[in-house]
Amino acid sequence: MSAAPDPVPVAVLGAGAIGGVVARALHAGEVPGARLVGVVHADPEDPPGLPVLGADEAIERAELVVECAGQRALAVLGPKVVARGRDLLVASVGALTDPGLWDSLDGGPGRLLLCTGAVGGLDLLRAAAAMGPLEHVHIETTKRASSLVQDWMGEDEAAELRTTEQRRELMNGPARKVASSFPKSANVAASVALAAGDWDVVSAAVVADPEAGLTSHVITARGAAGEYRFEIRNHPSELTPTTSGVVPHAVLRAVAGRTGATGVFV
Rank of each mutant, 00 (worst) to 15 (best):
G197M: 06
V218S: 11
D46Q: 13
T242P: 00
S185R: 06
P5H: 07
L194H: 01
G33K: 03
P79F: 05
G117F: 00
V66D: 00
L89D: 02
A91R: 05
V218R: 14
D6K: 13
D200P: 02
R86N: 02
A118V: 04
G33M: 05
G107H: 13
W102R: 15
V65K: 05
G54N: 04
R253W: 12
Q150R: 13
K177S: 14
D209Q: 04
N172T: 15
A75H: 10
A129I: 02
S191I: 01
G213C: 04
S203Y: 04
G121L: 03
T240H: 13
A145G: 09
G260E: 08
F265G: 13
K184V: 11
A254E: 13
E211G: 12
L214T: 09
L114Q: 07
T164L: 06
G20W: 01
T220G: 12
L113A: 07
M131I: 11
Q166Y: 12
D156C: 07
A145Q: 06
D156A: 15
R35L: 06
A250V: 01
L64P: 00
M171P: 05
R176V: 14
A58T: 04
L113I: 12
D156Q: 14
R144L: 15
T141C: 12
M1E: 12
G70D: 06
A196P: 07
K177I: 10
A256N: 08
L170A: 10
P183R: 05
A159Q: 11
R176Q: 14
P248K: 01
A224T: 13
A73Y: 00
A75W: 03
L96Q: 03
